[in-house]
């Protein structure tokens, strides 16, 4: 077969693929399967059940799905994804990609990308400084010293934070997409007398629909699995910003209930799977 241009042959090709597959199998696939298995035991980090875990069937799933804390956490995650990814990052990113041009564009883009590439440990601390109740920049600017943002509005804080953090990706993706809209289509719409909104609706959106889908699904997945808010609020106060990623960490690794944590992880895996398959379907239909 002519595709075997270097004459590798199947044996050598398999040897090339093997190391990668072994690492993936051991450190990615095996944990994923293990998490499902763990979900049906009462395994704990310490204590009696640590030595001798028992099979408990779907108990963990049942207690997770009926546990108020899990359900609250899921609802908070939905708010977090919708607020920061779909509304925040996608809309701000699109707007920036659409309206900016020239030197202003390069400068603003630089800042937006900076927010994206800095390590999460650093940016979360920057936001702690920004939102500090007594001497934080925000309260100083607004003239309301003493206002405890992270305590009174923890969800709003992490949503705005994640918008700040992740807009760069959407901005760049939409920038690339808008560059592919043929100018002649826009011009003919303008000649036909379409206003700005009509041009968006009739020319631009149909053209970049594929990009919008890709973007929304990717940023949703990432935001859904994002652990960084833990660094800002640690899920608090009182679980008011305990999104699922933080929830798993708290029950499983801080609380030591590995079996229950694994059940929640399995639910997260399933949600990821559904979103990813949905995404691949749409992608295939695009072609």
């Amino acid at each position: 077969m002519s595709t075997d241009a270097a004459g590798l042959g199947r044996v050598r090709a398999s040897a090339f693929v093997a190391p990668a597959l072994i690492l993936i199998a051991v450190f990615l696939v095996f944990p994923a399967l293990w998490v499902v298995l763990l979900g049906v035991t009462n395994y704990r980090l310490t204590g009696l059940a640590a030595a001798d875990p028992e099979f408990v069937g779907l108990d963990n799933f049942v207690s997770a799905l009926t546990d108020g804390r899990f359900l609250d956490s899921t609802w908070l995650t939905v708010q977090f994804v919708l607020g920061s990814a779909v509304i925040g990052q996608a809309i701000l990113g699109f707007t920036l990609a659409k309206v900016l041009h020239g030197r202003v564009k390069r400068f603003v883009e630089g800042l937006v990308i900076l927010a994206w590439i800095l390590p999460s440990a650093v940016v979360s601390f920057l936001w702690i400084a920004l939102l500090d109740r007594d001497s934080g920049t925000l309260n100083t600017l607004l003239g309301i010293p003493g206002f405890p943002w992270l305590l009174d509005h923890p969800m709003l804080s992490i949503i705005v934070f994640n918008t700040w953090r992740g807009t760069a990706f959407s901005m760049m993706l939409y920038g690339a997409a808008l560059g592919n809209v043929p100018p002649s289509h826009l011009e003919s719409a303008r000649l036909a007398g379409a206003n700005g909104w009509q041009q968006l609706r009739d020319v631009i959106f149909p053209h970049i629909r594929g990009h919008i889908l890709t973007n929304l699904l990717l940023i949703s997945l990432w935001t859904f699995n994002d652990f960084t808010p833990f660094l800002l609020t640690a899920g608090g106060p009182d679980g008011k910003s305990e999104i699922l990623a933080v929830h798993v960490y708290k029950v499983a690794l801080q609380g030591g209930e590995l079996g229950y944590g694994a059940a929640v992880s399995t639910v997260i895996l399933l949600i990821n799977l559904v979103v990813a398959v949905f995404y691949l379907r749409l992608l295939r239909e695009q072609r």
């Binding site: 994002d226 992880s265 979103v275 691949l280």
Partner: peptide, 21 residues
Amino acid sequence: ALLLLSSIITGTAAMVPLFQL
């Protein structure tokens, strides 16, 4: 399968078994 794996198995979902492993 690789494409799926790369997008669904995240640190968040796999932290418990990775820790155990």
